[in-house]
Write a protein that binds this DNA or RNA. Structure first.
Length: 324
DNA sequence: AAGCCGCGCAACCGCACTCTG
DNA sequence: CCAGAGTGCGGTTGCGCGGCT
């Protein structure tokens, strides 16, 4: 029943490809094209199965492959595509010229998944993680930070004191950064987070230890009257950059990067697609619009006009007018 | 220096889909 | 319409390498 797996053939080499094998494969395909992958190994004089040859060519030897690190733009695109397409690596690869499905899959599994988790985003649903109990999480962070500070015992050594001060700053900054991530990731972020902040005396005291951050964080949190916290004001850079505290600069930059990441990425906590409507079409080119629609179609199997502008009964007609 | 560990990536495996006769 | 062959895809594995103890 069924066909035998091609790689079960005895004597067929497995494992890493040698430069010689690569050369033979490239030479053959350049001269004859790949034709039937199953017949290729024999014709090219390779002791490999066709599947292995195909994989090697598609993922490594193809001349149009772009190697090297994924840049920020590519990473944003991958995350966006993943939110739309899920684990459809080959479909994603068609939107990233020169990148292979395998490369994208590996990069997702080794880097991007962790990145999203660290931001408090569920990499599967692209929604804020629900497994984070905010108050418990903050308490743990606080405990860790205060323990770290509490361990700073008296010392007459000025260098030791300096190191201890740095450690205290590090601990505070870690709390702040983690807090920022939680707030950014939360879908209805501010009320719980602010309550936790304001009511937690220890945390307030902790932050009062640092003037620059008190200005932004404590004022920003206690003075808030609406449900939405302004992230930029909370994370804004101090006007006078203090060269003695590079770690703070780094942290601010890190927080800003998180914010920028979402801002540039146009990330939305609403399901999958960022709705665009004819009214705001000037925000992007018509090509981007077409890409967006094609992606929707690719994802859902049909052109779902309502996804482009939910609730608008005339959406389909509007879009057709624009595009056709 | 040696052993251990975690990470990144190339490659493998098996299933599902498409094509063809 | 059906069965077998061919191909593509996504999940998983395992190796090599670098950092750490």
């Amino acid at each position: 029943m069924g066909r035998p797996p091609c790689c079960d053939e005895t004597g067929v080499k497995k494992g890493p490809w040698t430069p010689e094998e690569d050369r033979m494969l490239i030479d053959y395909i350049q001269k004859h094209g790949h034709g039937s992958w199953r017949k290729l190994p024999e014709l090219a004089g390779l002791n490999r199965c066709g599947k292995s040859c195909r994989l090697r060519w598609m993922n490594y030897l193809r001349p149009d492959i772009k190697r090297g690190r994924f840049d920020d733009e590519e990473e944003r695109l991958i995350i966006h595509l993943h939110s739309v397409l899920g684990n459809k690596w080959s479909a994603m690869a068609t939107h990233l010229p020169g990148r292979t499905d395998n490369e994208i899959k590996n990069h997702w599994n080794t880097h991007l998944k962790k990145k999203l988790l660290q931001m408090g985003i569920d990499p599967v649903t692209h929604q804020p993680r629900t497994d984070l109990n905010l108050n418990a999480y903050l308490s743990n962070l606080l405990l860790a930070a205060t323990n770290s500070i509490g361990s700073l015992t008296c010392s007459s050594d000025i260098n030791a004191l300096r190191l201890q001060a740095d450690a205290a700053n590090q601990a505070k900054l870690q709390v702040l950064q983690s807090l920022a991530q939680v707030i950014i990731a939360s879908s209805s972020p501010t009320r719980d987070a602010l309550d936790a902040l304001v009511q937690n005396h220890q945390l307030s005291e902790l932050f009062k230890m640092n003037n620059q951050f008190d200005q932004g964080l404590v004022h920003g949190s206690t003075g808030v009257s609406q449900d939405t916290l302004s992230m930029p004001s909370m994370l804004s850079k101090p006007n006078n950059s203090n060269s003695e505290k590079p770690s703070m600069e780094n942290t601010i930059n890190a927080c800003n990067q998180v914010v920028d990441f979402y801002a540039n990425f146009n990330y939305s906590h609403t399901p999958s697609l960022v709705p665009v409507s004819p009214e705001n079409q000037n925000n992007g080119s018509i090509d981007q619009l077409q890409d967006h629609i094609n992606l929707t179609e690719e994802c859902s199997g049909s052109r779902d006009w309502d996804m482009l502008n939910p609730g608008n009964l005339d959406t389909e007609l509007c879009w057709k007018d624009i595009l056709e």
